[in-house]
Design a protein around this nucleic acid. Structure first.
Lengths: 248, 248
DNA sequence: AGACCTCCTTGATGCAGATCAAAAGAACAG
DNA sequence: CTGTTCTTTTGATCTGCATCAAGGAGGTCT
């Protein structure tokens, strides 16, 4: 908690790694300038909670680097992850002042934040921000609905395969890996976090990963390093036969 | 299919029942006028498919009356409902030209449609539309995430209770029923449609409804007419103990 | 080194909900 | 009224995943 601020990483928007994907993606130079004036960076260590559901939230922002999760918890402790926040993803909602979900940094995270009030005011005069935010929100809605199918109708094995294919796809899109050839990536989540995402127990996650490995769908090195020799095979296992459709 | 057009129900925006809740909610008189010029009504009978996933979709629109569902289907036939469309809900996505989901009219439905192209052009000059659409999309995203918790972590009984409480709440907000006193409403869905929403089989839905009835949580008259004597009790059964939070 | 984490794996057992099967009510056509 | 179809209920059985339980692997602290 103590060094949260000391690790802040100020940058110039010009070389921001998420410049072309975040809420600011469509902004012109002058609009970017306005945003620049109200922005500030915050850093979080792996495991730190960014905000608790129900807490007052006086900022919105984008994940610049690292990975965070959005989770809901019931009184008896059952938890469900409802979103995975990757670089460029937006956190918070204009027009609401309490966080709806717990936001937890899964790895070290840097966020580019804006105080909510000024941001909301800026949005009124800057259609490019509102447009981009609408686009991103529609994408998130699609992703959430995709996930409803996974949660409601897929088997444990299919769920794991679905998660792996999503992570693999996103990873490839970040690294600009070209198609074909084995995909290699690291799991950014613990077995428990995967279970929370998939509506399973961590034991079942572990068993199904072992099964996929045994069946040659994936290769494992250590606990987290994954190689997918045949992506189409993985997609089949996910029940998403052919035509991947959506892009990350 | 034949009388789809003959049943169209043209109206004046002034007395439109969804005037203050739909995408046009924030529009001024002149903006409404522009919308008025590109709008047209379409009617669908109960059971009719409004559009199939993957079909070209050259319009967007709002549900004026009736209820429709948004569903995804896997190749092997498993289906998951990903949205329930009630009056004022928006269908379609600006900037995409294929439907992402099957849209099916559950009851007779009237929709207020706009051809996509003109609507998109209008949106550029009409921030009130884009603002409202963003707000509605954020609400839908919240609802989808709420539903992920239901699908991922709740028991069959809790799922049924959750669905009933959502329908009851929406129904009450439409009818402006004041709080307290038993809630009475009709289920707008078959057991099978409920099962598709909840990630269950229709047999399990039937059994759990019988169980809730046996336990006095609800009363049933016929197959569809429901009375909820104690809403708090229903909320408890849904696992959403106290503080209902979200509003319809 | 050893003690103590956290994260992960694997085995044994139990149960909630799926599946298979049958039949009853309701709506409708002829 | 009778047959047909659609929706729903209820029963019997099966199974996939949860639950309970015990270690193993790797890291960090002392």
């Amino acid at each position: 908690m103590l060094d949260e601020e000391t690790k802040a990483v100020p940058r110039d928007c010009g070389d921001c790694p998420i410049r072309h994907r975040a809420v600011c993606a469509r902004c012109e130079a002058d609009e970017l300038e306005s945003l620049d004036q109200i922005k500030y960076y915050r850093s979080f260590e792996a495991g730190q909670t960014v905000i608790w559901a129900g807490d007052k939230m006086d900022f919105v922002g984008s994940v610049v680097s690292g990975i965070a999760t959005l989770t809901q918890t019931m009184e008896d402790g059952r938890t469900q992850m409802v979103g995975l926040l990757l670089p460029s993803d937006f956190v918070g909602r204009p027009g609401r002042d309490e966080a709806a979900y717990d936001v937890v940094a899964t790895s070290d995270v840097v966020m580019c934040c804006f105080r909510k009030k000024p941001f909301e005011e800026l949005m009124v005069h800057t259609p490019h921000i509102a447009q981009r935010l609408l686009e991103m929100t529609l994408d998130e809605l699609d992703a959430a609905r995709e996930w409803m199918l996974v949660l409601g109708r897929k088997t444990a094995r299919e769920k794991i395969a679905s998660l792996l294919s999503i992570i693999a796809r996103r990873d490839a899109s970040l690294k600009l890996t070209k198609a074909a050839g084995p995909l290699v990536f690291d799991l950014p989540l613990t077995r428990e976090a995967m279970a929370d995402y998939l509506g399973l127990t961590l034991e079942t996650v572990s068993r199904q990963i072992s099964a996929l490995k045994r069946d040659g769908v994936i290769q494992l090195e250590g606990k987290r390093h994954i190689t997918v020799p045949d992506f189409d095979r993985l997609m089949e296992e996910a029940g998403d036969d052919n035509d991947g459709g959506m892009l990350a």
